[in-house]
């Protein structure tokens, strides 16, 4: 359980999410479920990862047409054309 809380805080930091201690149970059981895959290791010896199902079916962009977006149409605070976000806050 202590282990899980450590994992939880790491994941929370990396994902920028608050995770609750009660998520521990779910996370532990999913992790266990994922671990069952290690049985398949011997079956995939020498096999390369498959990241794209057709691997090399791809194309490049040639045409230049694009769709301009007016930044003001988005839900953002705009200041002199710039999008404004909080940063360091009051120090």
């Amino acid at each position: 359980m202590e282990d899980c809380e450590k994992t939880l805080s790491t994941l929370s930091r990396l994902a920028r999410l608050e995770l609750q201690p009660e998520d521990c149970e779910a996370i532990e059981s999913i992790r266990e479920f994922f671990s069952t895959l290690s049985e398949a290791k011997r079956l995939v010896e020498g096999k390369q990862p498959l990241y794209h199902v057709w691997e090399t079916e791809s194309h490049l962009r040639i045409q230049e047409a694009y769709h301009q977006v007016n930044i003001k149409d988005l839900m953002v605070e705009v200041e002199e054309g710039f999008v404004k976000f909080p940063w360091r806050g009051k120090q």
């Binding site: 895959l37 290690s38 079956l43 995939v44 096999k47 390369q48 990862p49 498959l50």
Partner: peptide
């Protein structure tokens, strides 16, 4: 990475 290799299988 293991999952992507199993995916190939």
């Amino acid at each position: 990475v293991l999952a992507t290799r199993v995916r190939r299988m």
